Each structure stands twice: as C-alpha cells, then as structure tokens.
Simulated scan of single mutants.
Amino acid sequence: MTMYQKLRIASAGLATLVGAALIGRLWLVALDAVSLGNAVHGLVFLLLALGLIGYQRLSLALTILACTPVFFTGTTLDSAGAVAMGQYVLFSLCLILFVIHPRYRKRDDA
C-alpha cells in the first residue's frame, strides 16, 4: 500500500468522523433548521467518505467543496470547534491529495 493510498484512507476516516460529529450534534443543540442543515451536511460527508475510499479525483474535489463553508462561518472554540478543525484538516489533506494524484504525474519509464 502506497503513502497516497494510506492518506486517502485517512481522509475517508476523517470525513466519517466529521460527518458523524455533525449528525451527532443533533442531540446537543436545539432542533431547528440550522441544526437539521448541519445534519444534512454531515450526511454528505458520510457519503463522500465512501467515495474517498476509491481512486478517482471527483470525490476529492467534492470533499474540498463540502469543506469550504467552514471558511465563511465564524466558528469559535466551543463544541463546534473540533468539527471545524476537522474540516480544516480534511480540506488541506484532500487538496494535497488532489494535487499529487498519481494518474496525472509523469512517469519515469526510461
């Protein structure tokens, strides 16, 4: 197993944790439209985690897009701080994996 595959599996695990945390916050906050929207966002992360186990770049790009709303919300270090930090790390990891995707690197077949 290459380092790329190990990082890809790690990103799938992190996406699963972020998704489960977003859904799990339903038990901690008042049930309103915002909390239900966050739970749906968590469901998207769980579905993207399945795609991150694979090999294609589409799941990386969609995960990067799913993580971008965290940059536009002013999240403090309360109960949502760990989830936001997880999204920052997932965004960075998927961006790096998107750039170094092995299909588009030159091969040294000399």
Rank of each mutant, 00 (worst) to 15 (best):
F71R: 05
V44E: 06
F45M: 15
G19M: 01
L93Y: 06
G37M: 14
V70E: 11
F45W: 06
M3T: 04
A21R: 04
T73C: 09
A15R: 04
L17W: 12
D109P: 03
H41R: 11
T2A: 13
W27P: 09
G24A: 13
L95D: 05
M1C: 08
G81I: 08
L60Q: 05
V29Q: 12
V29M: 12
H101Q: 03
Y88T: 04
D78E: 10
L97A: 13
M1Y: 11
L28H: 07
L93N: 03
C67P: 06
S11A: 13
I96T: 15
S79P: 07
A39W: 01
R105Q: 06
S35R: 01
D78W: 11
L28E: 10
L28N: 12
T73D: 01
M3C: 11
A20T: 10
A20L: 07
T68H: 08
L43K: 12
G86Y: 00
V99W: 06
W27V: 13
D78K: 11
V34P: 04
L62P: 01
K6I: 06
L48A: 02
M1N: 08
R105G: 00
S11N: 03
A12S: 13
T68C: 13
F72H: 08
V89H: 06
Q87V: 02
T73A: 15
L46E: 00
I53R: 15
L60S: 02
L47I: 11
R8Q: 09
I96C: 11
A82H: 02
A39P: 04
G42V: 08
V18W: 04
G13P: 07
G54W: 06
M85I: 00
A82I: 14
Y104T: 07
G42T: 04
L17F: 14
Y55D: 14
R57Q: 01
K6T: 13
L95R: 10
A80P: 00
L43N: 01
F72M: 03
T73E: 07
A12T: 02
V29R: 14
A82S: 12
G54I: 05
I23P: 05
D108N: 12
L36C: 12
K106N: 00
L22K: 13
L97P: 01
Y88A: 10
L90D: 09
A84W: 10
G13E: 05
V99M: 01
R57A: 02
I9T: 01
V70D: 09
V44H: 03
A66C: 07
A84Q: 13
L97T: 03
R8C: 01
L58Q: 14
N38F: 13
T75E: 08
Q5R: 15
P102F: 04
M3V: 02
L7Q: 09
A33V: 06
L58S: 09
F91Y: 13
A80R: 10
V83Y: 01
P102V: 00
A66F: 00
G42L: 03
H101L: 03
R25Y: 10
A49Q: 06
P102H: 02
A84P: 14
S79A: 15
V89I: 15
S11T: 02
A61D: 09
L47W: 02
I64N: 10
A10Y: 09
L52C: 07
V44K: 04
L36Q: 14
L52H: 10
V99F: 08
